[in-house]
């Protein structure tokens, strides 16, 4: 058993090590920041990991020492290795109270600092002018995303375009269940709730396509409630806006009500926003969806994992779903 114990200890040390090696090959989304908000959080996480590794090393070291040295049948055990009446030591208690306390203080300061920082739009890097944030209303309904650009007067479903190097001010709300907007490479999440409006600032520094999703469980279609973020240069973004404004259809209230029905849906774009008839983030808009579709929320989609969103493009009724199940 003894050798097994030591083996276990080595194994324990090897598991994280091998994982770190294995993972340095691929990039973990959270540890691969593409914007200032994610960068702030990345820095904080890395800062905390240093302290945590220190604690882990100290405790594991002390633990290994105790377990190896003071086992009953260690060869060469001495009489002085056993002191059953040791009851404690106040000095050492104080020491190991104060040190963790200091670590907590060391972690609290940057935490509080960054918390306040994240409530404001990210600051422009030195030498560049501070741009006005782009306001996007990100609204969820079971199980889809609406992104409304009030100034541009366009709206997209399940994808969004943003310009790089400009803060995005997301106005988060939900038509029904509570959800959360999360784009790991751009920064952390916040909840979307009906009748309330949260503000989340994000910004992309690099062009690219980033995965975004709802990260708060809200029912059957939760897993599929994802979207893609196209971060592109100011010019590309502007031309996309213009094209959408000119070529996309207007969003009528009937069509929007139809879209609000629980279910999955494909990407779409419109040259007007649903904010004209309802803002779910206000007290008036909080029960808009539930009053219209109260009876539909209980219906099951019988969603299997290989079904693509396309299956649910037009039809919402159960019969069609049944056929795609078996």
């Amino acid at each position: 058993m003894k050798s097994m114990k030591q083996l276990m200890k080595k194994g324990l040390a090897l598991v994280p090590l091998s994982l770190v090696l294995f993972l340095s090959g691929c990039e973990l989304a959270v540890l691969d920041p593409k914007g200032p908000v994610a960068q702030t959080q990345y820095d904080l996480i890395m800062y905390s990991i240093i302290f945590m590794l220190f604690i882990v090393v100290v405790v594991f070291g002390a633990f290994a020492f105790m377990v190896i040295r003071y086992r009953e049948n260690r060869p060469g055990r001495k009489e002085s290795d056993y002191d059953p009446h040791m009851h404690g030591n106040n000095l050492i208690e104080i020491v190991w109270t104060v040190i963790p306390f200091v670590i907590v203080i060391a972690l609290s300061i940057p935490t509080v600092d960054s918390l306040f920082e994240l409530e404001k739009p990210p600051e422009a890097t030195a030498g560049e002018e501070q741009k006005e944030p782009l306001v996007i209303y990100a609204t969820t309904a079971d199980w889809k995303w609406f992104f409304s650009y009030p100034e541009e007067n366009i709206e997209t479903v399940n994808y969004l375009h943003i310009p790089t190097d400009r803060p995005i001010e997301f106005k988060l709300s939900s038509a029904d269940a509570m959800t959360a907007l999360w784009i790991p490479r751009l920064g952390g999440q916040k909840y979307n709730m009906a009748g309330m409006e949260n503000t989340l600032y994000l910004q992309a520094d690099e062009e690219g396509v980033y995965d975004g999703r709802n990260s708060n469980f809200n029912g059957e279609g939760f897993t599929k409630q994802t979207f893609e973020v196209y971060a592109e240069s100011e010019e590309d973004y502007d031309s996309w806006v213009e094209e959408t404004q000119s070529s996309a259809p207007e969003l009528t209230q009937e069509e929007y009500d139809e879209l609000l029905k629980p279910g999955l849906t494909v990407e779409a774009e419109y040259s007007s926003t649903h904010l004209e008839f309802v803002d779910h983030g206000t007290n008036d808009g909080r029960d808009y969806a539930i009053e219209r579709h109260y009876d539909l929320y209980g219906d099951l989609m019988h969603l299997y994992s290989d079904q693509e969103a396309e299956d649910f493009m037009d039809e919402e009724n159960d019969d069609d779903h049944e056929s795609s199940v078996e």
């Binding site: 409530e119 404001k120 001010e169 009748g195 309330m196 409006e197 503000t199 206000t282 007290n283 008036d284």
Partner: peptide, 12 residues
């Protein structure tokens, strides 16, 4: 929320 001066949440 101390961002922008609108404070529309205040009403609701």
């Amino acid at each position: 929320h101390d961002h922008d001066g609108e404070n529309h949440e205040q009403h609701e």
